[in-house]
Simulated scan of single mutants.
Amino acid sequence: MHLPKPLGSVRADHHRSNRALAVARVLPEETAIAMVYNGTTHAVMMATPADIEDFAIGFSLTEGIVTDLSQITSTEVELHPKGIEARLWLTDERADALAHRRRTLAGPVGCGLCGIDSLEEAMRPLPDLTGVGPILTVDEISQATDALRKWQPLHDRSKAVHAAGFLLPGQGIVMAREDVGRHNALDKLIGAMARAGVDPSQGAFVLTSRVSTEMVQKTAMAGCGIIIAVSAPTLHALRLAKDAGITLAAFARGEGFDLFSHTAKLDGKVPHVA
């Protein structure tokens, strides 16, 4: 089985100063990925066709379909003419619980809440992560997004792909995944970490995107207490982070960052200037 390539080359006319030049551009691929549990399709997401098993496992964990890998009895990836099926077989208990969830998530990339038919489900309670996570230094947070760039081969070629990385204190970024969708990249990272036995509570998620509601929800469901992002949070995402005990550092771009919540996870030796 050969999955579609995550990148492809196309021709374009580059216009500048009233001149046109034929150029080759590398663009990311988007493929419909169906999450199929015990033979029934639960969700269809548009995503980069890479790291599919990581994606399926991470999605299952962050959406609360499973709480532990032992509840997934087997997985397989199947290519179809119109997309890819990620097939997961669950234990009877989890399959029964899933049958009671009236959800579909068919939607375009970038919308992690598309299709949810319940406001209660969209704003589901999150675990309390107050005190969860290591103490990070100013330099570790400031340099996190710059360090993540070394883990972005798809973005280096296409300039159109998000990344999510995992930072451990004293080690830097130790793992990362990429996708055209910011929430897909995070799901892939969480799935890869679960498969490798890496504990999310021991470090921080580093994001190349803004911090939206679903990014905080997925972080909390994974059990990670720190988010470091290159861009801003939404107001509601910040409220969720505060309520869930998540430290949120945004606008992290090398020379500094803004720390919005739960500042105790920052090295306390930093002086504050009013």
Rank of each mutant, 00 (worst) to 15 (best):
F59D: 03
F59Y: 14
F59C: 09
F59N: 06
F59H: 08
F59G: 02
F59K: 06
S60R: 06
S60G: 08
S60H: 10
L61S: 05
L61F: 07
L61P: 01
T62A: 03
T62M: 04
T62H: 09
T62W: 05
T62E: 10
T62Q: 10
E63W: 14
E63V: 12
E63G: 08
G64T: 12
G64Y: 09
G64M: 09
G64N: 07
G64R: 04
G64D: 04
I65W: 02
I65L: 10
I65E: 02
V66D: 01
V66W: 02
D68M: 07
D68N: 15
D68P: 00
D68I: 05
D68K: 15
D68L: 04
L69G: 05
L69E: 06
L69F: 06
S70K: 15
S70M: 05
S70R: 15
S70D: 14
Q71N: 09
Q71E: 07
Q71L: 04
Q71P: 00
Q71Y: 06
I72D: 03
I72E: 03
I72G: 00
T73S: 11
T73P: 03
T73M: 07
T73G: 06
T73K: 04
S74V: 05
S74H: 11
S74G: 09
S74A: 11
S74I: 07
T75A: 09
T75Q: 03
E76Q: 11
E76L: 00
E76S: 08
E76V: 00
E76N: 10
V77R: 01
V77W: 01
V77L: 05
V77T: 12
V77K: 00
V77Y: 00
E78W: 02
E78R: 07
E78H: 06
L79E: 09
H80F: 02
H80C: 06
H80L: 09
H80Q: 15
P81L: 00
P81G: 07
K82N: 15
K82Y: 12
G83K: 08
G83Y: 08
G83C: 03
G83I: 00
I84Y: 01
I84R: 01
I84L: 04
E85M: 03
E85P: 00
A86M: 05
A86T: 05
R87E: 09
L88N: 01
L88M: 14
L88S: 03
W89P: 01
W89F: 03
W89A: 07
L90S: 12
L90W: 07
T91F: 01
T91N: 08
D92Q: 15
D92V: 10
D92S: 15
E93I: 13
E93F: 06
E93T: 15
E93R: 12
R94C: 01
R94N: 10
R94D: 05
A95N: 12
A95L: 08
A95W: 03
A95G: 13
A95Y: 04
A95F: 04
D96L: 13
A97V: 11
A97S: 11
A97C: 12
L98D: 06
L98M: 13
L98P: 03
A99S: 14
A99V: 10
A99N: 11
H100P: 09
H100K: 13
R101K: 13
R101N: 12
R102I: 14
